[in-house]
Write a protein that binds this DNA or RNA. Sequence first.
DNA 1: CACCAGGCAAGTA
DNA 2: TACTTGCATGGT
Length: 219
Amino acid sequence: MSPDRGGGAEALEQMYRRLHNYYGEMHWWPGDSAFEIMVGAILTQNTNWRNVERALENVKREGCLDPVALWTCNDDDIERMIRPSGFYRIKTKRIRAFLEMVMGEYKGDVRQLCDTETDALRERLLAVSGIGEETADSMLLYGAGKPIFVIDNYTRRILTRHGVITDDWSYGDIQALCMRAGDNTAERYRAFHGYIVNTGKEFCRKVPRCAGCPLEMMT
DNA sequence: CACCAGGCAAGTA
DNA sequence: TACTTGCATGGT
């Protein structure tokens, strides 16, 4: 028997209410353009956001924060600009692969890319080497404004600690649960994910510091 | 000093 | 299929 993936929607709803009450309005993932957010989604893989900001500042300062401009850069230039984000060689390859898709299939028009139907766009992003589920969903939600729930390690950890899921749940299982309840708007998904990351950083690390957590003693 | 950070792909058995 | 490892910088 596969585990029960039917319940838990009420727990999610309660979590959202508690987190919203604790953190208030949240506008997560800053960025001046969809393209900036999509590049940032690659840069932030296993990397502190502060270092991503440094990398993005470098790219922006050199006027390369758009598909055509970045496309004309050499790999050496991209590596140099994004170095503070770490993994700069492999991330340059990943950015290059993403650019090839944007340029080749959308002529560098990010607006057109964002207008693509959600499921088709998700499949297309996942086919790019270096873009996995979390990165694709971050691009879809924060870049393209699609109503897609982003599942990260904090989401998995918090839901596991609260007994809502178990270790054998796949990314898609957890995502389906998180997208089952309430009003499924991009606005809500953005806030919810931001809440989860804030809560995870502050209270739910590998060595948990649960005292004061807004989810503490949740039934 | 060890450990962490807004993951993913390739390699191994 | 299910682990393991490489990728790399900067902060705590």
